[in-house]
């Protein structure tokens, strides 16, 4: 068992790149998958993973370690980068185009291709629906539904009560069912 996130982040705050490397290797998978789930694009997920770890390093002194994990905060950074990409004039449309693009590699099995297209479309539909939610609902959706962070950790990270997180989660689920069902 290696050092905990909290221990490592204490060293990261002091500028220890080796400790950051350990955390990078430990959590890249979660961050990368979260990026995909929020965009429906593996290309975008890769950019988002890079961006999130860069932001994490630069903002290391203000990171929030929840319990003994830095993951909830990293997922919040990914969510904010997605919004920033969508908002920014500089990169406007890039994420959306990526969400809509077809797979870049096509193999010989038509059924498999169709299945992957369907899966990608479903992820994109959920991602787009989450992006349209009001801020409070969107944030708990990104953390708890997509990122699978538990409600207690999300509450601590967001600085609200666990009850608030659970209520917003209920409302988000209800809205998402309706929104995704209509797409």
């Amino acid at each position: 068992m290696g050092a905990s996130d909290r221990e490592l982040w204490g060293r990261v705050v002091g500028g220890d790149q080796a400790a950051f490397e350990v955390l990078f290797q430990r959590h890249l998978g979660v961050v990368w998958n979260h990026g995909y789930r929020l965009t429906g694009s593996w290309d975008a997920a890769e950019d988002l993973a890079s961006g999130a770890f860069l932001v994490a390093w630069r903002r290391r002194e203000s990171a929030v370690v929840v319990g003994d994990s830095v993951v909830p905060w990293l997922l919040t950074v990914v969510g904010n980068l997605v919004r920033e990409e969508r908002r920014s004039l500089w990169r406007r449309g890039r994420v959306h185009r990526r969400v809509a693009q077809l797979p870049t590699s096509v193999d010989d099995h038509a059924d498999d291709v169709v299945a992957r297209l369907d899966a990608r479309a479903r992820v994109a539909a959920v991602a787009q629906a989450i992006g349209k939610l009001p801020a409070a609902l969107r944030r708990v959706s990104e953390l708890c539904l997509v990122g699978e962070v538990d409600t207690a950790a999300a509450a601590e990270l967001l600085g609200v009560s666990e009850t608030t997180v659970r209520v917003n989660l209920s409302r988000a689920r209800a809205r998402l069912r309706t929104m995704v069902g209509e797409q």
């Binding site: 932001v55 630069r58 903002r59 950074v77 920033e84 990169r91 801020a135 409070a136 609200v160 608030t164």
Partner: peptide
Amino acid sequence: PVAAGVVAAALAVGLVAVVGSDS
């Protein structure tokens, strides 16, 4: 450009406090 995301992060989390916080 990702540096802008830092500000967005602070802004967005702050908004959550208004919309969703009970405190």
